[in-house]
Amino acid sequence: MTILEARNVEFGYCPGAAAVLSASIAVESGTLTAVIGSNGSGKSTLIRVVAGLLQPWSGGVFYRGRNLLDQKPQSLARQLAYVPQNASIAFPFTALEVVLTGRAPYHSRFQLENAEDQRIAMNALDQVGIAHLAHRRVTELSGGERQMVTVARALAQQPECLLLDEPSSSLDLKHRSALIRLLLDLRERKGLTVLMITHDLMLLEPGFDHVFALRCGRIAASGPPQQVITGDILVEVYDDAFIRTSRVNRQVCVWSQVHR
């Protein structure tokens, strides 16, 4: 079943200069979908339109068949969570306080978080492996740790569908894989649906069900990773003739040759 769908969405930050052009994507329930593409290809813009943060010029985004515009933001936030690319936090909130904000959609405006919310928040921190940082100030954490805090905040929202904008950009090798293992595990146990922007082309296979490749704001390729993560398609998507791929034991290797 298609849980999240964007139909012919167009959006730009200045009039006349569209960053996303007539893009259509459909995400099946309980699957892991990746969005790939070079810098500035419109990936982040597309995911923000899909998350309902930007209103498309034309076209529409549908969650469970209903237009996002027709849904109450608070009830939508219980089903759809979004992890921004780089959340810079100016005030010294503790990691736990940040994660607890993920519980806001479950409360009215004058309700404070209860013990159950705290348990959920701690559990989310534990899932991403940073429970020991719960009472540390986020302003004192490293970039990667802060990124994990934002992911934990989205998990505390207990969404059906999780949208992530390059969640692994400042994570080390171990934590990149750990994050994908966590997402696979959540799909297994909770039926979580994931739409994730990533540059880690080597981690998509096996595990991810579908890949959308963006080029200059348009969907240039779409299909299972085995079909999209290939030399021919990537050369075109990234506009780089030096990209090579090779497959060893279900694992794909992608690189762009430095020495020509």
């Binding site: 943060l53 921004p84 959340a87 810079s88 936090i89 904000t101 806001a104 405006r109």
Partner: peptide, 21 residues
């Protein structure tokens, strides 16, 4: 009345928007 929304905004604007603010 808006202090809850302001708290979510103080953490992060984009997250606040995705949390229903």
């Amino acid at each position: 009345f808006v202090s809850r929304d302001l708290n979510l905004l103080a953490v992060d604007e984009q997250s606040a928007a995705s949390l229903g603010v």
